[in-house]
C-alpha cells in the first residue's frame, strides 16, 4: 500500500468516525438495574433499533410501551392495523397525547419507520415489521443513528428468527402468576435477551408493578 492511500484511508476513517458521532443520542434507556448491568451502556441504547419477538402480544406490547415511555416524547407507533388502547397503555407510562399512531403496511411502513427514526423531533418509534430483512434492518438502524432515536421493531416469534441488524433482540413472553383464582395481580413476563452486540444473552423473569422488578435472575442462558 502506498502512503497516499494510507492518508486517504485515515481521512475516510475520521470522516466515518465523525459521522457516527454526529448526533449525540443521549443516555441509554434504563429497564431494571440487574438487566441494565448486563447491557453495554447500562440500558437500551438510543440511536439504535431493538427487536422484540412477540411470544405474547399483550406482554410484548406492554414491554414496548414502557420502553417508549422512558425514551421520551413524542413517540410514533407504526402498524398495518394499529390497535393500541390509550387507557391500557397509560399505566405503563405511555401518554396517548404524545403518541402518534401511523397506519402503514409493507413498503409504506418501512418508509414511515425510516422517516420517523431519522427525525430528531421524535424520541422513540415502534414499528410492527414482520418481514424485516437484514439490509432493510441495517437501513433503519442507520436512520435511528442519524436521528438519535430509539427504534423498537415488533415481529412475531418464530423458532429460528432470521439474522438481524438490530442492536439487541428479545423474546417477550407471559408467565403464569401465583395468587387466588378470582383476582389478577401484577403481570409476570419472561424477557429473553437472545442477542446483543457486546453482551452475552440472558433471561430474566420480571413482574410489572409500576416498575420493572426482576424476580429470579436466570442470567445464564443455555
Amino acid at each position: 500500500m502506498t502512503p497516499p492511500d494510507r492518508a486517504l484511508i485515515e481521512r475516510l476513517r475520521s470522516l466515518i468516525a465523525r459521522g457516527e458521532e454526529a448526533r449525540p443520542s443521549g443516555p441509554a434507556i434504563p429497564l431494571a438495574p440487574p438487566i441494565d448491568a448486563a447491557l453495554p451502556g447500562d440500558g437500551l441504547a438510543r440511536g439504535a433499533i431493538h427487536e422484540l419477538l412477540t411470544a405474547d402480544p399483550g406482554a410484548a406490547t406492554a414491554f414496548a410501551a414502557l420502553i417508549l415511555a422512558r425514551a421520551g416524547t413524542p413517540t410514533v407507533w407504526i402498524e398495518p392495523t394499529p390497535d393500541p388502547y390509550p387507557a391500557g397503555l397509560a399505566p405503563f407510562g405511555l401518554d396517548p397525547a404524545t403518541l402518534i399512531v401511523v397506519r402503514a403496511d409493507g413498503t409504506d411502513a418501512l418508509w414511515a419507520a425510516e422517516e420517523a427514526l431519522r427525525a430528531p423531533a421524535i424520541a422513540g418509534v415502534l414499528a410492527s415489521l414482520p418481514r424485516l430483512d437484514l439490509a432493510t434492518g441495517r437501513r433503519l438502524h442507520l436512520a435511528a443513528e442519524a436521528g438519535g432515536t430509539l427504534g423498537l421493531i415488533l415481529r412475531p416469534d418464530t423458532p429460528n428468527p432470521p439474522p438481524t441488524a438490530a442492536r439487541t433482540r428479545w423474546r417477550i413472553s407471559a408467565l403464569p402468576t401465583p395468587g387466588p383464582a378470582h383476582r389478577l395481580g401484577p403481570p409476570h413476563w419472561r424477557l429473553e435477551l437472545l442477542r446483543a452486540r457486546g453482551a452475552p444473552p440472558g433471561t430474566w423473569n420480571v413482574a410489572w408493578d409500576g416498575t420493572l422488578v426482576v424476580l429470579g435472575a436466570a442470567r445464564a442462558h443455555g
Partner: peptide, 26 residues
C-alpha cells in the same frame, strides 16, 4: 421542535393520507 415534528407529520400524511396519521385521544 414543534416545527420539525410538523414537517415529519406533513410528510407522513402526504404519502399515507391524513387519516393514517393520528393521535388516539381517550
Amino acid at each position: 421542535r414543534r416545527e420539525a415534528l410538523a414537517r415529519l407529520l406533513d410528510r407522513l400524511r402526504g404519502r399515507l393520507g391524513a387519516r393514517a396519521v393520528v393521535r388516539l385521544d381517550p
